[in-house]
Amino acid sequence: MLLPELFALLSSDLFLLLSLLTCLLEERFPKPVPYIYQIAAIMGFGHLVVTKMFLTVFDVDLRFWYNFFYLAVGLANVVAVNLYLAVSKKTWLLAKVWSASVTFPTVFISIFFVYNYGSLQGATFPLLTVDLILILSVVIFGITVAVLLSPKLLKELGRR
């Protein structure tokens, strides 16, 4: 049985990963970034503690949505770091590596768990909304990868 809190756990781990990676690449990021991600991960811990305390009060739908939101924030940060490396820092090679080793696996794993949750739990939340969010995420992710792999693509599209 999958609990919706799995998304919070996953997202918290994502923030920890981001914290360590931004620390390793500290010359490319503002100094407080790794610590901010640590705080975000600790907020995930608080998130889980509150859920545990009010487990009987919060219904499954509510728990799913706020955990899913936290996961979405985590994923948005992963993508944002990817874009920051590519667009702001112009480190294309690093952005490509980040895309392949961090962004793609995390987005893929998240989609896998969300779909599994939807199908296994027989959840009552509107799956269509989740579908649309995930499809949108995948489309944006695909465009990002395409632009990262060939930066001239944007310029060509702009000319047209």
Binding site: L3, E5, L6, L9, L16, L20, T51, K52
Partner: peptide, 16 residues
């Protein structure tokens, strides 16, 4: 990170 990750996992385990 290890500390936070372990605490998170423990809380999640207690939830399950």
């Amino acid at each position: 990170s290890i500390l936070v990750g372990t605490a998170n996992a423990a809380i999640f385990y207690s939830l399950t």
